[in-house]
Design a protein around this nucleic acid. Structure first.
Lengths: 359, 359
DNA sequence: TCGCGTAAATGGAACGCTTCATTTATACTG
DNA sequence: CAGTATAAATGAAGCGTTCCATTTACGCGA
């Protein structure tokens, strides 16, 4: 890798001059500038950004740590953030915490050592967020995405979880469901609490009694969806609808449903948070609360960069992005009547047309 | 952010000594070392990796550029690579090329400027890979993942595409299918060619005539699966089975099938490259050629780091990883007889039990 | 032809760290 | 106690940039 010194020598100018033509930081005569550019081409010179960063005290890199890139929601988040970063000349250093605080801690430290200009964070649940406090104390700009780190005074771009869930459950209620189960996320996570709150709110406004038995405490992981789903389905008091608090748990739930031979939507209605891409190409098409993942990443990164560049100052901001309810097959064709009087008949063939066409 | 100088001052030692206790590069008396550690804790000191990198001429960062992180195959790749990187003390700088050479070029340049120690690359199709050649010429270690960049003398970790496809098509043939269509990837990509070759090989060994009409040239994107799938299904000479050359196109194909009311596996058999996570939790469960994505990333990163650290020298290596054929519902229940005599009956209800139980 | 003002080019300090040649402190031996 | 071997601590150079205070070159009017 050639250095600016070599470029300067080859062009027959001083290092300072070379730097000036590259950075456009001071006027250079046409002739010399041309010689410098030629040298750059000939040597295939790539400015050493490491040295630049040292001098400039900024790396033009953003750190991003989130639970699991393998979850399509988060990969969309990344894409959004990457686009914003790219537009503004930053690169993304990503890392997966796997919901382990220790890993998160490790990555945050590594990112700080690398002197990233700021950090995008979908925090993991923990009682010990000292690593985050210390980062904030050290003035490392942080923007929380999707999940707020509790008690941290930082910017955040979040989905309107309460509203999103509430609307979806309200939709189920409107269809006649009264026994609606929910598989929650890890309740240490505020986001999980919010979704549960949306569920409660919907029940409340419809005067439906909230029952602990219908609330299965999950953890946002596929296995939980499978296990808790099975539990719900095997219960003699089977609910007529199940709401999963994220897409990955719904995946597990679908496996459970399949194994038990339960049919959707005839035997049970399903709805879920997250509109993963397969929601539209598989059976049953899932009614889903679509989060604007890409937009969240995009806005989050822009917000962060605004902070980094001092274009935004003052109190931390919280942006709430609305979700969109996508009504699909998995909440159709269920006969409310069958629900009302006891255990649902497996073969209930409620005519589709009798239901409001709510697409 | 505090510096080592501040740490040294607070501990009452020289900078060199502080550096020695941090790096363990030279013996330091117990008492002083303790004072240094204390100062580090008190100041919440995070060594400036930028300065370190400048001095050491290595950043402990790996670049990774691939087409689209949103494709679950690639996010698995990343996870694998990240695990290897983490184990060996590296961080991953990821970027999505979106199959655009220009973007790829831009990222590769950015990564080189950042002086990453090496690059993991799933190359995009192009006739102009000068950016890669110049990187190789500059001794930037590169390992290709999934897709080989044509004519580049670099290491690669690839799937055994020919074999994987061949086995799957062979499976279809064994079920009695004779009219098997394939939706290919962008044929400029060697990987797409390999999968097509596997298809041809399977036909050949079964003495089935290769027909251009059954080969739909796609591009690995969902839209292609949808469009070409529809074309195939609307053709009066509808094939009895379709093989999609990647999971994302299969997604599109499923939409097409759904729209046209074609049932799988009764009306048509489906099989696909890539075993995306939804293959097991949705209907129809898809017969798939599972690529060891995670292992690919893991091995690729390790290979790259071996090169970076000089633990591996000499000629470029190519590692081929075997795929695994997962036989599932989407290739069951189809009556070979119905295929043999003309257009398949939509309602053919071949009994499942009459077919070999090939799980 | 000499100064002078402006524009262009240069050189060196500094960024935070590691490394290594020196210097300083400590311990041991005769 | 002097002398020496050994261990520990220090200071300065250098990594590749940028930035800025100087220096150099140039054109023009008197």
């Amino acid at each position: 890798m050639s250095t600016i010194k070599e470029v300067a020598e080859r062009a027959g100018v001083s290092i300072g001059t070379a730097s000036n033509v590259i950075g456009g930081s001071a006027p250079v005569s046409k002739a010399r500038a041309a010689r410098v550019w030629a040298a750059i081409k000939e040597l295939d010179y790539h400015p050493n950004e490491v040295a630049r960063s040292l001098k400039a005290k900024q790396t033009k890199m953003l750190g991003m740590v989130l639970p699991d890139i393998t979850n399509p929601f988060f990969s969309d988040l990344i894409r959004g953030a990457e686009n914003a970063a790219l537009e503004r000349g930053y690169l993304l250093l990503t890392a997966n915490s796997d919901e382990q605080v220790e890993r998160e801690k490790r990555f945050v430290a590594a990112l700080r050592s690398r002197r990233v200009d700021g950090i995008l964070l979908a925090a993991t649940a923990s009682k010990n967020e000292t690593h985050l406090r210390s980062a904030v104390a050290a003035d490392v700009p942080i923007v929380c995405l999707d999940r707020m780190a509790p008690g941290l005074a930082v910017d955040a771009v979040l989905a309107d979880n309460v509203r999103g869930t509430q609307e979806c459950v309200r939709h189920l209620i409107r269809l006649g469901h009264k026994k609606i189960a929910i598989i929650t996320g890890a309740l240490e996570l505020r986001i999980a609490g919010e979704r549960l709150a949306g569920y409660r709110a919907a029940l409340e406004e419809a005067d439906i009694r909230y029952s602990d038995e219908l609330v299965m405490k999950g953890d946002f992981r596929e296995e939980a969806g499978y296990r808790l789903g099975k539990e719900l389905l095997l219960n003699r008091e089977r609910p007529s609808a199940i709401f999963a608090c994220n897409g990955v748990m719904m995946l597990g739930l679908l496996v459970a449903i399949d194994e038990l031979g339960v049919r959707c939507p005839q035997d049970i209605a399903l709805a879920t948070f997250d509109d993963l891409m397969f929601a539209h190409s598989f059976h049953p098409h899932l009614t889903a609360v679509a989060q604007p993942a890409n937009a969240m990443g995009y806005q989050g990164a822009n917000l962060l960069i605004d902070r980094v560049e001092g274009k935004l100052t003052g109190e931390p901001l919280t942006v709430r992005l609305a979700c969109e309810l996508k009504i699909r097959e998995s909440t159709r064709g269920y006969a409310p009547a069958a629900v009302a009087n006891g255990s649902p008949a497996r073969s209930s063939k409620a005519s589709r047309t009798s239901l409001p066409a709510t697409t």
